[in-house]
Structure formats: structure tokens, C-alpha cells
Design a protein around this nucleic acid. Structure first.
Lengths: 286, 286
DNA sequence: AATGAAATTTCAAGAAAGTTGAAACTGTGG
DNA sequence: CCACAGTTTCAACTTTCTTGAAATTTCATT
């Protein structure tokens, strides 16, 4: 019922929704009618299902969230079943995912051949979301967080610096680049620098108009040599070698990277082992 | 299917589960068989459904969480439907719930007669949980939190002090009670004082063996006059007047109380209004 | 190891729910 | 005001779920 309703609301008409759901318009119409009867009030303004009532909007919001969660759980259960040795679900920020998980996951799976691993890389917020919703067992995030039901430990600290092409002026100049030089050299903002608290830095880059949220395209821009950006060091180490990282004079602040472990996971043994592997990793040496 | 499986796993046998589900054992048996066939592997160790396989345990964990969430969403949808004017769901720590929500909710419902309000009071962790899961629109918590998709603003700060019966020695003595006097007077620990960072304080109370997590029973103990505890001031103001609050010498730290608003709520208008009412409240004057 | 009570599974029949195509209806745009 | 695309209704059909009885399995007891 909820799925039918959400599909119709998304499609804006009944016949298209019916096609998407793989049944006839009349079946969809009847299901919808049952739902409206159950809830006593109408969910759509008109018979042409293109505008929701206020109740419809509220139910839509709730139902859509629920369906996403439900589909995720089903997928997780099925992944479990296809993983006779067990399953561990990791969520991480991309830089760390690319840098240590190839090693860490290799280590874990060599100890437990047949163990399934699900690795997802997104931003810190999504990682926390996945952990809180029970959609991941272990996670790596920027910053330090105190969260309900989640164990936290710091992994390493990361210097911020300017990233530029090897032949860029800032890559060669001898005294460390200053904040103003960086800001004046075609600076591209990105979402990782928002956590730099330094007022002088934020003020200097306030004028730059270009913002990119995706690291890959951000670095592609920088590789052209016409742009520069500021990122934590480990983000570039994870990328190809054709970029230069240079500390910026006056920017002392570091990015903290933390490991999070959800308590009450369905797979405590492997999560604990991965936790230990990650803590044992030589973070400083990179 | 999932509900059937979870019920059987909880019951430990099939017939009892069948009774709870309101169907015959054979129906339950068949449903379970379908689920196991779908997942290819068995979920129970034996035919007497009293021990789960490893897969069974993992699926149980996932399914149980899902079912709770699902039932909650259904209830929320039905509450919506029974609330033609709209619905707002509030989660708050008890002290604030008792202190301002009678006023705030009165204000909101007088502006919108017919608006439904759902108020739940629990601890900070559960409040955050409810917000993150989309089970509450607005929340009040201890401490300051940066959370994905949630707007946060500080409401007020709260002094910690010793709570005792009016005729208790610590209630009358003239110089402010010291940490050691408090610790030596039948001190009861509670979960709100864990956020006091002060090392000297934590060390002084480390010896006390009694811990209570429920504020009501905690204060009942204190009313006997044989025990004392330390709490933020507003926690006691919300209670009856037969208790005395006294600052403790050397304890400067304050509890921060914050207001949280989930973005993307199904009921943005009323949540925003309640947000404004709460921010407009004279927090200092209490 | 054999027995028996209790629980579970199987089976085929029956009930309930969901689905369909055709026909009737509705309200929107020309 | 009409035409028409989209929606609802209806009765028949299909699928799925449920049941009670019988067969089987399990576990505790001897």
C-alpha cells in the first residue's frame, strides 16, 4: 500500500505508476482507495493524482523514508544470506577508503576467507547516518563525534595545505605559500575546508566563487594548472602522484580522522577485528 | 515473513509464536520455510526453534530493528490521519519537558486549535535517536551536538549543584558545601553528572556506590534526607518544591541545553513555530 | 536403545486477498 | 460544449495464504 501510494505520488499520475509497479491501473486505483479509506481522509487533491493533500504530503514523507529503510534492510538480509562466513559493512570518507581499506580489507579477508565486506565511501555526515541507522557496522569520519551507541577513537591528524599542479607557481616558490597567495591563485572552495576554524583563512577565501563538492572533479580542475584548492594532505596522497601538496603559512589547524564502531552490530566479531587492524595501521608513516 | 520469523525467534518455539501471531502452527511453519528457502540457508539450528544459526542471529537483528521502525511509521501515519490540522512530534529531556512544554504546547495549540502534539520525554541519547530516525520533529537535549540534517541552537545554561532535603545539614550550612562534603554525605550518582568534566569532582564521587538513572526515584531517595545527589538546577525546579538546591564550591561547569530541529520534517510549519516559541521563552528567568 | 509425548512439517482443500479487462465515469483542455 | 485521456467500478479470475488432519520428527525418559 505504502509503496503504491509513494509511486503514484512520485509519478503524478496513476497509469504511469501502474506501469512502474508492474500492475494495471485498476489494481493501483483500488489499493489507493483502500489506503484512503483506512486513513479516513483523502491523500490526493483531485482524481488526477497530481497534487497531494496536506495529509498526503505528510504520509508521503513518512512512507518514503520507511520504504528506503525497508528496502535497505531487505538488501542487507539477502547480502547476509549470500555471505555464509559473515558480513561486515564499512562506511568511510573517500580518502581513507582509498588509502587503507585495500590493505585492511585484504588483511581481514585473508584471515577469514569467505567473509563478505561491503564498503561504501561518502562524506562524514552520510557515514554517521549509516551507522546510526544500523546500515553500517564500522565507519571512518572527519572530526570527532560523540554519538549514542557508537564507540569512537581518533586515528590520525592531517595537515591542511594547498594542492596544485606540479608546474604551478605555488608548487615551486620557496617560502611556503601564504594564505593570500593561495586565495589569489584561482582558488576553488570545497566542502572539506569548512571545518577549518581559522578566521583569517576563511576571510581570505571568502571571495572565491567556485565551489566543488566532488573530490575527483575538484582535482581534475587543479590538474589543469589554472586552479588550486586546499585539502587535508591524506586526500591527495590517496590520489595519483601528479599533484603537489604544500603547507600554507599560518594554517596550523589539522583535520582529525576518527574511527567509529556501532555497538550492537549484527556482526560484532569481525567488526572488532577490523577495528584492531585499523588501529594497528601505521597512520603516521604516510 | 520477517514478523513471523522474529516472533518465532523471540518465542523460542513455533506454537507459542503462532498463538501470538494469531494463526496456526502450520501456517507459521510454512512461512518460515519460505523465508529459509528464499535465503537458501537455515535460520534455526534445529526443528525445535530454540536456537538460531549465525545467519539467523544476523537476520534477527536486522529484522527486529526494521519491524520496530516500520510499526513506528505506521503509527505515525495513522496519528497524522487522525490529526486533520497537522501533527508535531516533540522529544525532550524530562526537566525541560516538564518546565516549558506545558506553556509552549499550550501556546502552539491555542494558535492552532486542532493541531495534534506528541510529546515524549527521555534522555538525550534517545532524543537524538528519535530525531535521526525521523520519529520526532523537534527535540531538546543536554549538551551541544553537531548532527547531520539537524539544526541546533543553544537554549540556556544550567548550574550544577547538590540536591538535598530541606532539613539536611548541607541545606543549612553557611559556607557553600564543598565537593568533599557532598561526596561524604550519602552521595548518589546519576547519569546526568557524567558530563561534568571536572576531574576533582569526578574523583571525589568515585567512591560512591549507589547509582540511579531515573530522576523520580533518585529524588525520592533524596527526600528521605539520608542521601544527596548532584544535578543541574533546572531538573529540580521542574519537581516539587520540597528539595533544596545549593551550588557546590569549586564546581563551575554548566550544563548546556540545546534545541534541535530536524530538517525535512513532514510538518515544517508547526515545527518552525514551536522553535520560535521556545527561543522566545524567558530561559534565564527561571 | 526403545518408547512416548510433544512439537513440527506436510498435504490438499478451502478462504481470503489481490489482480484483471471491460465498461462506466469524470474533469480537463481544446 | 465536446472529446478524450485518465480514473474508477465491477464481477470474474488468479494467486496467495490459511487451515485441520495426518505423518513425521524430536527430545526426554526409561
Amino acid at each position: 500500500m505504502l509503496r503504491t501510494f509513494v509511486t503514484v505520488a512520485q509519478s503524478g499520475n496513476l497509469s504511469e505508476a501502474a506501469a512502474r509497479l508492474g500492475r494495471t491501473p485498476s489494481a493501483v486505483s483500488m489499493t489507493l482507495k483502500q489506503l484512503e479509506e483506512h486513513l479516513v481522509w483523502r491523500l490526493f487533491e483531485s482524481d488526477r493524482k497530481n497534487r497531494l493533500t496536506r495529509l498526503g504530503e505528510q504520509v508521503f514523507e513518512l512512507a518514503q523514508t520507511e520504504l528506503r529503510q525497508f528496502d535497505y534492510t531487505l538488501a542487507a538480509i539477502e547480502t547476509c544470506a549470500r555471505s555464509p562466513e559473515g558480513l561486515i559493512r564499512v562506511a568511510s570518507i573517500p580518502s581513507v577508503a582509498a588509502r587503507v581499506f585495500p590493505f585492511a580489507i585484504g588483511e581481514l579477508t585473508s584471515r577469514h576467507p569467505g567473509l563478505s565486506v561491503e564498503l561504501r565511501d561518502t562524506d562524514t555526515e552520510q557515514v554517521i547516518d549509516a551507522l546510526m541507522r544500523g546500515q553500517a557496522d564500522i565507519g571512518v569520519v572527519s572530526g570527532q563525534h560523540t554519538l549514542n551507541g557508537i564507540r569512537q577513537v581518533g586515528l590520525f591528524r592531517d595537515r591542511y595545505g594547498v594542492i596544485c599542479a606540479p608546474d604551478h607557481r605555488l608548487a615551486r616558490q620557496e617560502p611556503e605559500p601564504t594564505i593570500d597567495q593561495v586565495a589569489g591563485a584561482g582558488f576553488i572552495r570545497n566542502n572539506l575546508i569548512n571545518s577549518i576554524g581559522d578566521g583569517a583563512f576563511q576571510q581570505a577565501i571568502a571571495g572565491s566563487k567556485v565551489v566543488l563538492h566532488n573530490t575527483t572533479s575538484l582535482l581534475a580542475m587543479v590538474r589543469t594548472g589554472k586552479w588550486v584548492t586546499v585539502l587535508p594532505q591524506s586526500v591527495v596522497q590517496a590520489e595519483r602522484e601528479d599533484l603537489v601538496f604544500r603547507p600554507v603559512a599560518g594554517v596550523q589547524e589539522r583535520r582529525h580522522v576518527s574511527l567509529l564502531l556501532r555497538e550492537g552490530t549484527a556482526f560484532p566479531k569481525f567488526a572488532g577485528e577490523l577495528w584492531d587492524i585499523l588501529l594497528g595501521f601505521d597512520w603516521a608513516g604516510t
